[in-house]
Simulated scan of single mutants.
Amino acid sequence: MNKKVEYQHIGKMPYAKAWDYQTELFDAIVQTKLENRRRTDRGEDALPTKNYLLFVEHPHVYTLGKSGKEEHLLLDKEGLEREHVEFFKINRGGDITYHGPGQIVGYPILDLDNFFTDIHKYLRLLEEAVILTLKDYGIKAGRIDGLTGVWIGEEGDPNPRKICALGVKTSRWVTMHGFAFNVNANLDYFGNIVPCGISDKAVTSMQNELGKELPMNEVEEVVKKHLATLFEMEIFENKQN
Rank of each mutant, 00 (worst) to 15 (best):
G65Q: 03
W151C: 06
H120Y: 05
R39M: 11
G167F: 03
K225S: 10
R161H: 03
K3H: 14
M1F: 10
E57K: 02
A185R: 00
I152R: 12
L34K: 15
V30L: 10
I29M: 07
N91Y: 11
M206L: 05
I131R: 13
W173V: 08
F26W: 14
T63Y: 10
L187S: 00
E127Q: 13
D157K: 09
L47D: 03
P215W: 00
L34V: 11
E154Y: 01
G11L: 05
V105F: 03
D76S: 08
M176I: 07
G167I: 05
E234N: 13
D45G: 03
L214V: 11
V150L: 04
K212S: 13
L166H: 11
E213N: 06
H177Y: 05
E221H: 06
D95P: 07
I235T: 11
A16C: 00
N238I: 10
V219K: 07
V30S: 04
R37E: 15
L74I: 11
L123S: 04
Y52V: 06
T63K: 03
L132P: 04
A185H: 04
P101W: 02
L112V: 03
L112P: 04
M13V: 12
V168E: 06
R82C: 05
P108G: 13
F179M: 08
D20I: 02
G153K: 11
I131G: 02
E35H: 08
N241G: 14
A180N: 02
R37I: 15
D200T: 07
